[in-house]
Every structure is written in C-alpha cells, then in structure tokens.
Simulated assay, not measured.
Amino acid sequence: MELETLRPNPAWDAASYEDAVDVLTTHRDDLVYRVWGGDWCKDCRALLPDFGAALDAADVPDDRIDHRPVDQEKEGPGVEAYGVEYIPTIVVETEDGTVIARFVEEEDRPPAVYLAERIEAWSESGEASV
C-alpha cells in the first residue's frame, strides 16, 4: 500500500531547493528511503507531498522508496523495529541496511533539506548523523 501523502506536490519548486535535490540525485541509486506516515495525519499531509516532490525531482527510483503506512494507533510495518513513535518518520539507509539519517516530524527544516544535509555529511565523513 502506498501513502497518498507521499505523492509529489505539483506546486513544489525544485529550483528553490537545488542543493537538497542535488544531494538526493547524487545518491538516488545507493540509498533507500523508508517513510512512515498516515494519509489521515495532518503533519504527514503537510510535509510528505513536498518530500515526494523532492524525490521525484531527484529521479529517485520507486524501488528506493519504501512506503510504510501506519494506522491511527501508529501501528504498522517496522514501527517497533525502527522505534517509530511520531509520524512522519523517514529513515535513510544504505543498501546493506545501515541507517545514515532519520527525519522525525518535529525537525525545524523540511524533510528534503534536513535529510540532504545529513546525507551529505555522511558522504563526506562516512559516519551517520542519526
């Protein structure tokens, strides 16, 4: 099942987020984005369409985006294993399952910007910033 809220926002302006899109583009074939959310959740409806647009602008393949819908009790696939308490939560992993970045709903920047900063730091240092 896919998250409708992760559908790209058609009004999102990729040029305004060029740095974030560039980072996502650079790593589009070697990272996996696990996205927990609910179409019923106001925070998800506010944040995920723009993140979906950023992934789309970066041409991140669909098989690199793992939709993990949760119910109103925030139960769903991988919730316990990944310690998901708030939604949206986005976990970025390498192909071998190493978590390199994590966005949780209360961050002070949009998901694409926040995660791009952490992905870039990981790329430069080889160390995760979760």
Rank of each mutant, 00 (worst) to 15 (best):
G52A: 11
G52R: 15
A53T: 05
A54D: 08
A54T: 07
L55F: 15
A57R: 05
D59Q: 04
D59K: 10
P61G: 10
D62H: 02
D62A: 10
R64V: 01
R64P: 02
I65G: 06
D66P: 04
D66K: 04
H67Q: 13
H67R: 14
R68M: 01
V70G: 00
V70A: 01
D71W: 06
D71V: 10
D71S: 08
Q72C: 00
E73M: 13
K74A: 01
K74C: 00
K74W: 01
G76R: 05
P77C: 11
P77I: 09
P77V: 05
G78K: 06
G78P: 03
V79A: 09
V79P: 04
V79L: 13
E80A: 15
E80R: 12
A81R: 15
Y82K: 00
Y82M: 07
V84Y: 02
V84E: 01
E85Q: 15
E85Y: 13
Y86I: 03
Y86S: 09
I87F: 02
T89W: 01
T89E: 06
V91S: 01
V91R: 03
V91P: 00
T94I: 10
T94V: 04
T94E: 15
T94S: 02
T94K: 12
E95I: 05
E95Y: 13
D96F: 05
D96W: 14
T98F: 04
